[in-house]
């Protein structure tokens, strides 16, 4: 039991050190590393898509396939829940 506790302490120390180094290596708040695509979307979304809200234009126009996958996930969840709970009530 003592050996297992010792191994757990070593494991969590290593993981904590990795997390601390990863937190130190991140870019500062509000300034991304590679802002080329962000700047393109920010500067062109009002003239290309025609919407003032940039987030919605990204979700439904620039990254439409992601929204299609999200809709598929929601449809599958609803179908599974209705399949499980429909016949439970007599």
């Amino acid at each position: 039991m003592l050996k297992r506790d010792f191994a757990a302490v070593i494991f969590f120390t290593v993981v904590a050190v990795f997390f601390v180094f990863a937190a130190l290596l991140t870019h500062p708040f509000g300034s991304p590393d590679n802002p080329v695509m962000d700047d393109y979307i920010i500067h062109n979304t009002q003239t290309e898509v025609g919407a003032n809200n940039g987030v919605t234009s990204v979700v439904f126009d620039y990254r439409g396939f992601d929204t299609l996958g999200e809709a598929t996930v929601l449809f599958t969840a609803v179908a599974g829940v209705i399949l499980v709970f429909r016949r439970l009530k007599k």
């Binding site: 898509v49 025609g50 919407a51 919605t56 439904f60 126009d61 929204t67």
Partner: peptide, 12 residues
């Protein structure tokens, strides 16, 4: 404005 975005918003 927005093209097809409001219609997609209604559908979703």
């Amino acid at each position: 404005t927005g093209g097809v975005l409001p219609l997609m918003n209604f559908a979703v």
